[in-house]
């Protein structure tokens, strides 16, 4: 394949990917675009009215709240588990590596069927609550955390440091907290940003577990699907820009963490 040909092929693909977003951006500012090739008027009224809509704002806040709760839970439960398995329990670690495909192998719909039975009665009666939603989100955070933290751990001589620590009377916990944790912090940060993108975009659990009782951003978007094209365009555009922002943050974080990788 000639270089010229592959170049135009990549250019074509990039264009195909970018075109829809440009059209949607245009549709978000177009106020009168019903009968012409290009809009007659351009204005920011729809943008201000959507962004100023209390229902939209509340849904963004709910999404952020549930995502950060789930992230905090994941950090508290998953990071210690990954580090402990890496250092003390290699057999379990191999199972963790397989667990990365869990969100693919067990679809959310299937788990929801189980939740409705298990959590609709005591002892854990949390069906329909944001609590259940946050708990259901924790396993979703596992793959990104595992891949990134594990990558960072593999570049470190954790065992040697623990041995050295024992020589000077430092507990393993102290070495892990004061030496290892700062070294893997950039990887954890990167995983958090990537997971935030996943959780903000989650629809299945949100729709089937809480639905309209706790309207997240995705549920709000879904409810607006029959609205006018310009309203949905603004919502999609806002969401897309948020994703871009998160991505920029992720790139910045991985560039910072990448300096001390091989």
């Amino acid at each position: 394949m000639s270089r010229h040909l592959s170049g135009s092929f990549l250019f074509l693909l990039a264009g195909l990917f970018a075109l829809p977003f440009l059209a949607i951006a245009l549709s978000a500012v177009a106020t009168d675009w019903s009968d012409a090739l290009l809009p007659r008027h351009i204005g920011l009224d729809v943008i201000t009215s959507v962004l100023g809509d209390p229902r939209f704002q509340a849904s963004v806040l709910r999404s952020l709240a549930i995502s950060f709760t789930a992230l905090a839970l994941s950090l508290a439960l998953i990071v210690p588990a990954i580090v402990a398995a890496h250092v003390y329990w290699p057999a379990l670690d191999r199972w963790f590596a397989r667990l990365v495909v869990l969100p693919y192998a067990v679809p959310a719909v299937v788990l929801v069927v189980g939740y409705l039975r298990v959590f609709s009665q005591p002892p854990v009666q949390i069906n329909g609550t944001p609590t259940l939603l946050a708990l259901a989100y924790v396993p979703l955070c596992f793959p990104m955390l595992y891949v990134n933290v594990k990558n960072a751990l593999q570049g470190l001589a954790v065992r040697d440091w623990l041995d050295a620590g024992r020589l000077v009377g430092a507990t393993d916990e102290r070495v892990l907290l004061c030496v290892v944790l700062p070294m893997i912090a950039p990887a954890i940060g990167l995983a958090c940003v990537l997971n935030l993108g996943i959780l903000m975009g989650e629809f299945v659990y949100a729709n089937l577990l809480v639905g309209g009782r706790f309207e997240t951003l995705q549920i709000y978007m879904f409810a607006q699907r029959s609205e006018s094209g310009s309203v949905t365009s603004v919502i999609i555009l806002a969401y897309f820009l948020t994703l871009l922002l998160l991505t920029a943050l992720a790139i910045w974080l991985s560039a910072r963490g990448g300096t001390d990788k091989r």
Partner: peptide, 29 residues
């Protein structure tokens, strides 16, 4: 050494609660 394996327990407990238990009721049901 062995006692520090306990740090994986909270996560495994959550997996049991939020994945294994619901999934097994789906199978049984």
């Amino acid at each position: 050494m062995l006692s520090r394996r306990l740090y994986v327990l909270p996560f495994l407990a959550l997996l049991a609660l939020i994945v294994v238990w619901p999934l097994s009721t789906v199978v049984v049901g």
